Amino acid sequence: MSVSAQNAAPSADAAVVFDGVSKHFPASGTSGAFTALDKVSLTVDRGSITGIIGRSGAGKSTLIRLVNGLEKPTGGKVLVDGVDVGGLDEAALRSLRRSVGMIFQHFNLLSSRTVFGNVALPLEISGMDKRAIEQRVRPLLDLVGLADKHGRYPAELSGGQKQRIGIARALATEPKLLLSDEATSALDPETTQSILELLKRINADLGLTVLLITHEMEVVKAVTSDVAVIDHGRIVERGHTFDVFTHPKHETTRALLSGLPGSKLPDAVARALKPAPAAGDRAVVRLTFFGAAAEKPLISQLIKSVGAEVNIIAGTIDEIGGAPYGSLVVAYGADAETSGRAERFFVENGLVTEVLGYVA
């Protein structure tokens, strides 16, 4: 992924390029004019699974709708395989959309059609004959694990199975790029994990570029290789997922990461936090560790280093892209001597730290 805030020049490895893209919506009815995207520059590498994450209303869905021409930019360009999407006429747009598959949060299936019929629909619309459709759809149903459900109707299936139909349908036209707009947010955690594993397999086996829009950091952590954080229509942070998770630079990124299991503060502690310490207070600090540091007995070593009590408030050990990663929230004396010893320990062990506040 491009890491330049201003330069998103096309390259041979670019599947999608947002080049200074803005999108303004005029006043309409009771809604005033607003800017959904503000000079966004971003490169999505070919063959990657790239996540765009942000809060509701940050501009994520507008961004993804520009890729397949459902919206046109007010300024700048969106390039898909080097083609300026905003400059295409309707006929050229239809051709482009055959190379860009899309899966949706609410499945968008036709209740009157079987599983087979839903997957076959875009092929029927394109004029493909029945035999060719059969040869295309059957392997896709096998790929998504629904070969035995080909004659069933959506009402007979679970949410996860419906989303698998949506994925198979998105793959029917043999796209080079797959767009996922909050595709797992209506699913339970176990089903979400199975869908994410399917997307990873599709990416690996078919070499498909995946652009994934989500508000869930768990989804980003589980499946993406690269991530961009969007806030109020602007990209505020981007990079390899591991780097962004272990060295978050923007306050929006840190806020999103704080909601991950093991990072969220207990409500009682969060309510008691103060921005500055008083005599006898304790510092509440989030530690992020990875690589070799994840294998060390950090807390016992920290206690020895600071020579004082250290409380564990929250914590988790996980993996990002196969590399060990962990987060701990600890509390220790906020006095200058204890804090100084702790800070030296953190530097010596390559830990990323953030002081969250102070408690009595």
Rank of each mutant, 00 (worst) to 15 (best):
T192P: 00
L88P: 05
L351M: 05
A308P: 02
D45F: 08
A183W: 02
L146R: 07
E182P: 13
I133V: 05
A27L: 01
G57A: 10
N7W: 05
L143D: 02
A5C: 11
V284Y: 02
A342W: 14
V115E: 07
P189K: 06
R341N: 14
S22K: 01
E237D: 10
L157G: 02
V219N: 08
E190S: 05
H215W: 10
E218A: 15
A270W: 00
T209P: 12
P277K: 06
L265P: 03
V352H: 12
D13M: 10
G160I: 12
R131Q: 03
H247W: 00
V330Y: 08
G207W: 07
T209W: 12
R238L: 01
A9W: 09
G82W: 15
N118H: 03
A132L: 02
G101S: 06
I53Q: 07
A270H: 04
I103Q: 08
F346C: 05
L140F: 01
V115Y: 14
A292L: 09
T214G: 14
M128L: 08
E197T: 04
L356D: 14
H106M: 05
Y153T: 10
I103L: 13
H150C: 05
I125T: 00
S48P: 11
R98P: 03
E197D: 09
D84E: 15
E197A: 15
T353Q: 13
G54Q: 09
K249A: 08
L141F: 01
I303A: 15
S258N: 08
A308V: 00
H232L: 14
F18H: 09
L287A: 01
E174T: 12
Q301M: 14
A27E: 04
F290V: 08
A308T: 03
I64L: 13
T316K: 08
T338V: 15
V144W: 04
G159H: 10
V16I: 12
K221F: 02
V67W: 06
V330L: 10
A204H: 14
F107C: 09
V119I: 03
A314W: 00
G159C: 13
G239A: 05
G357L: 14
G239L: 05
L123I: 00
F346A: 10
E218P: 05
R169K: 02
A342S: 15
A132S: 09
Y153C: 10
V347A: 14
D281W: 06
P139K: 04
G117H: 08
S112Q: 14
P154H: 10
V115M: 09
V352T: 15
L171F: 08
A12D: 14
R94K: 07
E319V: 03
Q163D: 04
I230E: 12
D84C: 15
F25M: 00
L141E: 00
S48E: 14
V229L: 13
D267W: 13
A342H: 11
F18G: 06
P324Y: 06
I235G: 09
D81F: 09
T214A: 12
G321Q: 00
P275T: 03
S11A: 11
I165G: 00
E90I: 15
S194M: 04
A15R: 11
E216K: 13
L196N: 03
Y153L: 13
V16D: 07
V352N: 11
G101C: 06
G291F: 00
L178E: 06
L211H: 11
E197F: 08
A170L: 02
I133T: 00
R136Q: 01
G87Y: 12
V16L: 10
R282M: 02
L171Y: 03
